[in-house]
Design a protein around this nucleic acid. Structure first.
Lengths: 198, 198
DNA sequence: GTCTATAACGAGATAGAC
DNA sequence: GTCTATCTCGTTATAGAC
């Protein structure tokens, strides 16, 4: 068995621990607000190990952290969407799931992709591209669900955009307001919008 | 005439130049990514002047910068909403206006409130509150427009939430994708959603 | 691969003359 | 109100032993 497929927190390789720590910290503090020393400390790795695995420095590590957050939310999205047959219900369930995780973190842990990429436009293209790819992947998952439920391809494509982007914006608002109301309302409206295309 | 009401860029007082520079820089680089020295340089003020007007340091200045961005977008919102009679058309026009400004900046200048507040949750309550108040003000303007067009108060309240938050999320996505497609689609869907309540 | 030490630089903030 | 000089601390990144 390869080490990269082992389970259990203590069995994680150094590289994976570094990526996870970077993703979690940048999710809370953003790219500029997170230091490499803090990441190495949190990952229980030395600074030398960080630069060994990520010779491109902070930018390369941040791009990898975004891809980690991408995969993490994609798994949640797949799972929650599969749990409801009706696509409108499924999207509302995603909104509730996001709200639940946000509340559980006391409104601290926002979207890891957004938090890491905001403020890097124009001087960190790798980070911007990783974020764009994450959004595209998530939209693809939503679009697949909508098409599987009989919504026309072009409608599904556009609806997936608004589903992901509305959840993104509502999560930001929920975070600063320390309330799940924005996400609950967003879930209701997205469900209504989707239903109007059936 | 008081100096604070004078027009023209060169006639601005020092304090106002500092706030504007802070708002513009944090809109691009975020709170942590923007230095006070850079702000003072850009504002053509000395470091001493910055701390004279903002003894609370970077946090106090950032909160004021957010309130500046709040007022700026509120003015645009009022103006664009007033330019269209139909509320659905008006909201779509707002989406186009946001897309136009974003494209004009080569996808660099996102939402000044979001960019400044992301990553500060949990350790800068003044900033979080200023951001929450900005969103609330903007939602109030949208809600006023919807109610003036005959939409029930409770529906207008909830729709205003989703209008602002969807635009917010779509702007983030448009920024990383360097495309106005997310905002154009969001405008269309918001118009459709509003129309469904008439 | 891991570790320590340190270089090189910039950050936020302050003091005090003017 | 404005300006300069400076303190202190933290940052990214590198060097080189082990």
């Amino acid at each position: 068995m390869k080490t990269t497929t082992q389970a259990g927190a203590d069995a994680l390789g150094t590289r994976e621990r570094i990526v996870r720590a970077a993703s979690r910290l940048m999710q809370r503090q953003g790219y500029e607000g997170t230091g490499i020393k803090q990441i190495s400390r949190e990952a229980e790795a030395t600074l030398g190990s960080v630069y060994h695995f990520f010779p491109g420095g902070k930018q390369e590590l941040a791009a990898e952290a975004i891809r980690h957050g991408d995969r993490e939310f994609a798994d949640i999205l797949r799972s929650v969407l599969a749990g409801e047959e009706d696509p409108a219900e499924a999207v509302a369930a995603v909104a509730r799931a996001v709200a639940g995780e946000l509340r559980a973190s006391d409104w601290i842990d926002g979207c890891p992709v957004t938090a890491t990429s905001v403020g890097t436009a124009g001087h960190a293209p790798d980070i911007q591209q990783a974020a764009a790819e994450a959004f595209e992947r998530w939209r693809g998952l939503v679009s697949d669900k909508l098409r599987a439920c009989g919504i026309a391809e072009e409608d599904a494509y556009e609806l997936a955009h608004t589903v992901i982007h509305t959840l993104e914006g509502a999560e930001l608002a929920a975070q600063v307001a320390r309330s799940d109301e924005p996400l609950v309302i967003a879930g209701r409206h997205l469900a209504r919008l989707i239903t109007s295309y059936r």
